[in-house]
Design a protein around this nucleic acid. Structure first.
Lengths: 199, 199
DNA sequence: TGAAAGTTCGAACAACCGTTCGAACCCCAT
DNA sequence: ATGGGGTTCGAACGGTTGTTCGAACTTTCA
């Protein structure tokens, strides 16, 4: 890896941490300069501006979590739908815990981009949402499309909300949290679909 | 109600809508002036400043949702724990759908206040979280405190995330969404506690 | 060694921010 | 009508923001 790319990467990680702590809009370029040991003007050699910085962070993180999920599913066969769903949840939650700052920026600043950049990130997000929705379709094939879509977002809510409260250094390790979420959602989802379907 | 209080109320509602749409930090006082048909200086007759405006919106909304939840539970006996839990979920979700803008501001700008104001809102939030956690304790008394706390936040995630995707004017009405969440969570929560408790 | 390419940065700019202040306005009891 | 409290607002202020620019520094390689 070229030293330029390495410094850019380090810069993006540091910036993500600051964005996660203070929020994107109330973080100034001067804050970032101080946190990265760069000069104010020096950062513009690596990034065209503040919004492109946010875009780079979000795009990089989203591509990684998407690729990670796909490869986590690639090892499994198509036979066990709820096992695949559990694997997705496990990957998402552990990835979230391992990249807390970037994922918080991804979740919390979802609407802070504008124009073309917003569109590009939304396109990746759509692919990721569709991936999960497909898994839910395999678990409960008879579910209506509307209810399945709502269930998808509900599950994302369980997982993405953790940036508001979860402490990776606390008592609950990421795998245990992932299993807690997976058991709760899969259990309730499957049960609700099969037993209450007639009511 | 005095005309002053009426105009203040109207102002807070309008401002909440703008905060919900554009975000607190990137909304300017000039934006608010335009959206409320007031002059820039005129708003300062009703509110001490921008942050106090956010505080008033959050405090008012939080007190209402807390009081609403308590009164929704007051009618029920202590006999049926999961029925009480379901009532809480139903109230929270329908309230959310009915006051989308304020609740979005509550969820999304949870850390935008500072100092004393942050403390005051956090105190109300704590009461609200404790209320739900108490309901979960009645549903699963043997659960460890740590897991129960995580389950509480997980359920809040399911409910609060809806500001990112839910359209109250869409195909799913609030009651149906509330039941979907309640069935999914309660089913999975109760099942996971009873069957997997030994593993 | 020398110069070209790659990288850093001090200083400044124009625009915009939240807030203030005093004057003007409106409404109602006298 | 008239005085006075409640209410509105135009205009401006000081400070902060993202961004730019040219000069200076460092590295690279012939």
């Amino acid at each position: 890896m070229r030293p330029y790319d390495e410094r850019l990467d380090h810069f993006l990680s540091r910036a993500a941490k600051v964005f996660a702590d203070q929020g994107y809009h109330s973080t100034t370029m001067r804050d970032l300069a101080a946190a990265t040991d760069m000069s104010l003007a020096g950062m513009y050699y690596y990034v065209r501006g503040k919004e492109e910085l946010l875009f780079r962070i979000q795009e990089r993180c989203f591509m990684r979590v998407l690729a990670g999920a796909e490869s986590a599913l690639a090892g499994l066969g198509d036979a066990d739908p709820s096992g695949r769903l559990q694997a997705f949840i496990r990957h998402h939650v552990t990835f979230f815990a391992a990249h807390m700052a970037e994922m918080k920026v991804l979740s919390h600043e979802a609407n802070s981009l504008t124009g073309e950049r917003q569109r590009k990130v939304d396109a990746i997000k759509r692919r990721y949402v569709d991936l999960l929705e497909g898994l839910l379709k395999d678990v409960a094939p008879d579910e209506s499309a509307v209810d399945r879509s709502a269930a998808t977002y509900t599950l994302f809510g369980m997982m993405n909300w953790i940036y508001n409260w979860y402490d990776p250094a606390g008592e609950i390790d990421p795998e245990r949290l992932a299993d807690l979420i997976a058991r709760t959602f899969i259990g309730g989802f499957a049960e609700a679909r099969s037993t209450v379907h007639g009511g």
